[in-house]
Structure formats: structure tokens, C-alpha cells
Amino acid sequence: MTPLLSLHDVSKTYVRGAYHFNVLESVSLDVHAGAFVAVFGERSSGKTTLLKIAAGLERPDSGSVTFDGRDLSAVSSRDLAAIHRMEIAWVDRAGPSSDELMMVDYIGLPLLKSHGHSVATRLAISMLSRVGAKECTSARWGDLSDAERARITIAHALIREPRLLVLDDPTAGLDMIERDRVLGLLRATADEMHSGVLMAVPDMPAMMRSDDVLSLSGGRLLGPAEHDSGEEAVVLEFPRRQQSG
């Protein structure tokens, strides 16, 4: 089955004066429709860069990013904007640009132009209920707890029914129960909406509802060992050691 999103041999280097920092080195990754993929990495491991490249918000230095068969580095900026509007949802905790906006309006905002105010509001209320944040309908962003903000940002993304959801540390600051509820929402997004979900987290407990778990460090992305494939134990040749003394 062709993956919904495919990163192939992606590399990215940031240059700060004489210092070259290889954030990503030959990273490859697939996300299929209906799959929930989680990447573990410590702070500054390159998680956000990986996600931004996957979402087409940043370009790699080399390698390719393909979304639904389209090379994201080759599409026009207009088409890319359309993809971001309708197909790939980037989820972070930035919230609305205005703190005056009620959450029902913030969530309905992406549908306002296409559906009109009353339909957008109705769908927004339904989405708030779906993510367990009905009580936030009239609240402002500044009034919300971390848990409510996590649900609201997901609702804001899901209202467009995106084909791919890209999330940067969606469970930051949540207790275990709230974290699991948010992860349950993402699991349901993959299972019921058949969307692809790509998430990066600095906590491995947050990865336990995902289909694929990956580890990112020093620019390299690793996947789990596959024991069913009959992989042989690794035995490596060593150069002969010189005895001293």
C-alpha cells in the first residue's frame, strides 16, 4: 500500500557561523492512512524540524517528502497553501492569535468561509463535544488549562477532517489520565477518520497507543527491531587489539 506520507533520505543541516549542526541525517519515514506513528526524542533532538519537514512547512537540504504521491518540494506555494488548509493539519499549542476569540469561534474559523457562520458554529460545537471540551464553548484561550488547550488544538485541526495530522508534543504538561484521553482521541482519529497521525514526544509513555514507535537522536531515526523477520544477532568483526606493556 502506498504511504500517505513518505520521507526518503531526508537531511537537514543548520549553519551557525563556523558550526554545522546536522539535525537530520538520511531520515526515512512512512505514515500510512489510518496509522498512528510516534517519534521519541529528547529536547533539541530535531523532532520539530522533522515534523515541519514532514508537514511541508520547511524544506530539507536533500531527500524527498511525498504526500499522497505529490513531491512537496515541487508543488507551487499556492497548492502547498491549499494542502495546509485542507489536507495536512499542523497542531501545536500556539492557540488563536486573538485572546478575545471564544473557543467555538476559534474552532469554527477554518470552516467560516466555506460553510458560513451558523454551520461552522454547529460543527464546532459538535467537535468540542467530541473531544470532551464542550464546557469550553464560550471560554477564551487565556482561561483554559493545559488539558483543555490540548483538546482545543486537536479540535481546531480535526474540524477540517485532514488526511494527515502532525503534532508536536501534544501531551506536554498533562497528567496521566488527561494524557491518555488526548492519545485516545488521536487513536480514534486514525481508526475512525482513517487519517494518518504523526506525533513527536519527549516521553515514551505517550507512545503506547501508536502503531509505530521511532527514536530520533543525533539526526538519526531508528525503528524497533523486527524479531519476526528472522533477523540474525549482530556479531561484528573487530580489528585485532594491540597489547600494551
Binding site: R130, V131, G132, R151, I177, D180, R181, L183, G184, L185, R187, A188, M204, M207, M208, R209, V213, P224
Partner: peptide
């Protein structure tokens, strides 16, 4: 890690 099965997701 991949072998751990989380109990059914809590009701959102």
C-alpha cells in the same frame, strides 16, 4: 515498548 498494550482508551 511496542509490546505494551494500553487498556482501552478512556472516554474523551
Amino acid at each position: 515498548l511496542a509490546t505494551f498494550q494500553q487498556p482501552p482508551a478512556s472516554d474523551a
